[in-house]
Amino acid sequence: MSIASPMLWREIPQLYRLIGLKCKKCGYINFPRMGSICLKCGSSEGFEDHQISRRGKVVTFTVEHVMPPGFEIPTIMAIVDTDDGARLMVSMTQAKPEEVKIDMPVELVFRRFGEADGLLRYGFRAKPIKESGDVKK
């Protein structure tokens, strides 16, 4: 699917800015967008835009060694809990498979996600934080 599709266009604040939908009633950060009802409490009172933090840690992960043609080998997928209580699934970038561990600190960085129909896609991936602290946000 290319970024010319309405589906990706609708999701720009989520995909390019990591804007979560914080439930006005219970505070749960709904991400990605899925209608107007809060997953946690069922409220339809509405959401407010919430800028999800770019720092977090790995909750679980897997190193995928067998992939269909056209995918990075290995691909490392992770579930990340951000500092402000959101949870995301992301692929990792610039991570060495043997270094990835549960509770590892990561930074969410804006990277390219391949292309479709010649149009490039962008989104967030998790990059390990080294002790030198190259996190600025």
């Binding site: 990075e72 970038t93 804006f110 990277r111 490039l120 962008y122 600025k136």
Partner: peptide, 20 residues
Amino acid sequence: PNLDEDVVTMAAEATASAIK
């Protein structure tokens, strides 16, 4: 640059840094 970086991703990071 890594395979998933280009002028767009780098410009985005630099911009966020300047805003901060």
